[in-house]
């Protein structure tokens, strides 16, 4: 059960000494190496969103409000959701495939036979790395989206830079950014447990590994999108 996996992992994360080497390795892989795709996703989405907003707002002479809309949308929705989807595709799939292969080649049994609990060795370090990496990647996506929007609207569309900035700062509240980061924390939680659970449940050879990996990505993406909706309702209430 995925819930008991999460429970066990959190318990171990708080009660056992961390495996630093494994943790740092996963942090490098989940965090550092995902920066390019998350940055590209954030930057281009910020730009395209700014173009669309600018065209509409230009009709009603609200050019300089573009920055506020882009920043708030990036911080609350686009940044966390995009980062989570990109990480689900890149990291989630890799984690499921790796653990699934270990399962079907009896490497997980070998770990157990050596008195090492698979949750301690395989899941906890990845969980910790994900909980740190995804919020940071999200912050990066948000930042690059806002930058992309600014550069595009100000330097290519000719919006007035000081009004653009002033409106953006006026209408983007700290709690909007907090809203996005809380979401990313929750998404990280979903992604890593879905990926590890699907990996460790793998049966039936290499076909099974393919099936698990496929399911992990699909389930993760759907879970992110659906939980995003409910989190938005909840967080707008809580942070109001």
């Amino acid at each position: 059960m995925i819930v008991s996996l999460a429970g066990e992992t959190i318990k171990v994360a708080f009660t056992h000494r961390p495996r630093w080497r494994l943790f740092l390795g996963h942090l490098l892989n989940i965090g550092v190496r995902s920066q390019a795709i998350v940055g590209i996703a954030g930057g281009f989405t910020g730009m395209v969103f700014a173009v669309q907003t600018f065209y509409q707002f230009h009709k009603v002479r609200l050019d300089s409000a573009t920055g506020a809309v882009v920043a708030v949308a990036m911080a609350m929705e686009l940044g966390p959701v995009l980062a989570a989807l990109m990480v689900a595709g890149r990291v989630g799939a890799a984690v499921t495939a790796e653990l699934g292969t270990m399962k079907v080649t009896e490497q997980i049994d070998a770990l157990r036979s050596l008195g090492v609990h698979p949750v301690d060795y395989l899941v906890v370090p990845r969980f910790l790395a994900m909980m740190i990496a995804l919020p940071l990647l999200t912050a990066e996506a948000i930042w690059l989206g806002i930058m992309g929007g600014y550069v595009l609207t100000v330097h290519m569309m000719g919006a007035e830079p000081s009004y653009y900035m002033a409106n953006m700062i006026l209408y983007t509240r700290a709690r909007d950014i907090l809203h996005g980061l809380i979401k990313s924390f929750f998404f990280g939680f979903l992604l890593i447990f879905i990926a590890c659970h699907k990996g460790m449940q793998t049966e039936a050879g290499s076909e099974g590994v393919g099936r698990s990996t496929n399911q992990a990505v699909v389930v993760s993406c759907i879970a992110v999108l659906i939980s995003d909706f409910f989190l938005t309702l909840l967080l707008t209430k809580l942070l109001a």
Partner: peptide, 15 residues
């Protein structure tokens, strides 16, 4: 388990 050593049929090395 630490009293045991096991050789798996497929070796089960950590690849």
């Amino acid at each position: 388990r630490r009293k045991f050593g096991m050789l798996f049929q497929g070796a089960a090395l950590f690849d």
